[in-house]
Design a binder for these strands. Structure first.
Lengths: 220, 220
DNA sequence: TCCCTTGCACTGACTGGTCAGTGCAAAAAG
DNA sequence: CTTTTTGCACTGACCAGTCAGTGCAAGGGA
């Protein structure tokens, strides 16, 4: 059991000392993440963010140096959460002797959990992650690295344990897995929100485990 | 052999009567697609687009009713190209008696080709496709539908031909495949642009065909 | 041959509005 | 008393969209 509390379900708490200031910052994060996910960074105004957070505009600038800085901190904060959650899922499986393949499967589940819990945050990453020439480009590089590395590590261990062929291309496979879960989950949220997470997870597992092509399940 | 000419390699020609006006519109598309991919829609100004296209601002409004309309036409134009190219790849394989699995593989290749030829266009779709509350939402729904349907059809035929398990979830698998190719390709372009397309294609094929997990090649 | 007209495509200065960020005095909170 | 928040007026840069006017090629009349 981890120590983090889910709070309101929109954006999680920080390392969370309980000062008044932190509460304000959290409210601002919550407001910003949904607005920016919907409208994009540039068409979201600071006045809107302040209003949705129930705070005066001056307060935004008392807490963050600029709109850009607010956004960067949001990005960093969010990715830390995802990486931690993926890592925890993988560790939990391997610690009790599960295979690396099982760990991968657990990470897929953790990814789906994350996306369904913080859809706005996810949309926001997708929208920004492959852009170039933006102020927070370098922040995003770090952020991406942090998440992908977790997946790559498990893949690498799996190859070492001979659970996976040593022919696989680790970085590329990690990206592909990431994309598979990401896009499937976003489509799920946008177009079939009624389906259960187990359902979606099962479909992705099947695809990954190669039970899709070849009808191999019918063999003896 | 199709009749379309690749033009400059940034954005393809339309059905293209060769009037002066069409040439201008094409220049504007080219300029807009790269700028918007880099900076996003809202932070790209009409002045920038005009300048990069080498025309006056008024010309933009002579050719398009508004900045929004310019963008919508860009989206529609681009997706038509992708859908056509995927369909052509699939047809080409099945017409000469290849399996549906081979057709899927050909579509992956076509997807990679497309993304490497029009990276800016691709970035732009990714950034906008899962946003809500935007002016061109309905356009995007249509656009998405158009591309995903092509993949779903091949999957459905594959199930009918008993090349794929009837247990698979067709819409979700289509999304997942789409995402796999998309994210892998974007990462390839952004972070390892030197790798050959064959290399990337091979890695994705391996993942899809289930040759990744289980080391099945070693079995007795 | 020259001049005038017509209409299409394009031009770029200008307008009206928007928005990030500031400054400050006074009120809450702790 | 210090830290944080409020409310609000203000500035200056920036930007979508407008519009009166230019350039130019084709036609037609004399």
């Amino acid at each position: 059991m981890s120590t983090h509390t889910p709070e309101s379900g929109t954006i999680p708490s920080m390392d969370s000392s309980n000062t008044r200031r932190d509460a304000t910052r959290r409210k601002l994060f919550e407001a910003a993440v949904t607005l920016i996910a919907e409208q994009g960074f540039s068409s979201t105004t600071v006045d809107e963010i302040a209003e949705r957070a129930g705070v005066a505009k001056g307060t935004v600038y008392y807490n963050f140096a600029s709109k850009n800085v607010l956004f960067e901190e949001l990005l960093r904060h969010g990715i830390e959460l995802l990486a931690t959650s993926l890592q925890a899922a993988a560790d939990e499986v391997t610690d009790r002797g599960g295979s690396r393949i099982d760990a991968l499967d657990a990470m897929i589940r953790a990814g789906l959990d994350f996306i369904s819990r913080y859809p706005a945050l996810t949309q926001l990453y997708v929208a920004e992650l492959w852009r170039t020439n933006r102020a927070w480009q370098s922040t995003l590089m770090v952020v991406r690295e942090r998440a992908i590395t977790v997946v790559e590590n498990v893949l690498r261990e799996a190859v070492e344990q001979e659970e996976l062929s040593e022919e696989i291309d680790i970085p590329l496979t990690a990206s592909a897995l990431f994309g598979m879960v990401l896009v499937a989950a976003l489509d799920w949220q946008s177009y079939q929100p009624d389906r259960s997470i187990d359902d979606v997870h099962a479909a992705l597992s099947r695809l990954l485990q190669g039970r899709v092509s070849g009808r191999s399940a019918e063999g003896p």
